[in-house]
């Protein structure tokens, strides 16, 4: 994945072709952004199955809304996809609130209901803790943290995706880290 300003003209042309529902262009856009979108989704939900469902919803919505996308850079395209993901996730939470189900974390990620190794259970528990702590950050803080540590973006690319300058991203990052530390420490104490 290149920098935020790279290949703008090429990306605009790609988006234009995708608007005409060009199979290759949309396939290219999908392959470029699947990793980021899936990781982003996975950082917000409790199971891989949910993340896959959310990712699918995001790309189907992208196909349906491709005519209205105004993205001249890949960062803008990703920002739009993350925004779609946030909305879809909020919709899913609302649906779950209306029709309560058994907690998905209880179901776990073990395929075919096979017993999981203890280490994996502990890791799952740890990830669930971090996810819950993340959900307590502000939207902007969470976006910065996810971009930097889940997606592995540098400051510049994070700034392009969240639509802020580097200084603002730095401030958000520091506050988010400090708050996460406090939140996670508090959970450790409880545990």
């Amino acid at each position: 994945m290149g920098g935020p300003e790279d290949a703008s003209a090429e990306f605009v042309a790609l988006i234009e072709r995708a608007r005409a529902y060009d199979r290759d262009a949309f396939g290219e856009l999908y392959r470029r952004s699947l990793g980021s979108v899936f990781r982003y989704c996975r950082s917000r939900v409790d199971s891989t199955a949910e993340a896959e469902e959310l990712t699918q919803d995001v790309f189907m919505a992208a196909l349906a809304g491709i005519q209205s996308v105004r993205a001249d850079r890949e960062a803008a395209w990703l920002a739009w996809l993350f925004q779609v993901a946030r909305h879809k996730h909020a919709d899913a939470l609302r649906r779950r609130y209306r029709r309560p189900q058994a907690p998905l974390e209880a179901a776990g990620d073990a395929p075919d209901g096979a017993p999981q190794p203890l280490a994996e259970v502990v890791a799952q528990d740890e990830r669930a803790e971090v996810r819950r702590a993340l959900e307590q950050l502000t939207d902007e803080q969470r976006e910065v943290i996810v971009c930097k540590y889940v997606l592995g973006y540098d400051n510049e690319r994070t700034a392009a995706v969240v639509g802020k300058n580097s200084n603002a991203v730095n401030q958000l990052h520091h506050r988010a880290v400090a708050r996460l530390r406090r939140l996670l420490a508090a959970r450790e104490v409880v545990r």
Binding site: G27, Y30, R31, G35, R42, T55, V130
Partner: peptide, 22 residues
């Protein structure tokens, strides 16, 4: 700890979704 949330999509899922999407 946050980075532990990063999980790549499975190849099966990626291929299946690409096919559906296209």
């Amino acid at each position: 700890r946050v980075a532990s949330l990063a999980e790549p999509p499975s190849e099966v899922f990626a291929a299946a979704l690409e096919s559906r999407l296209l």
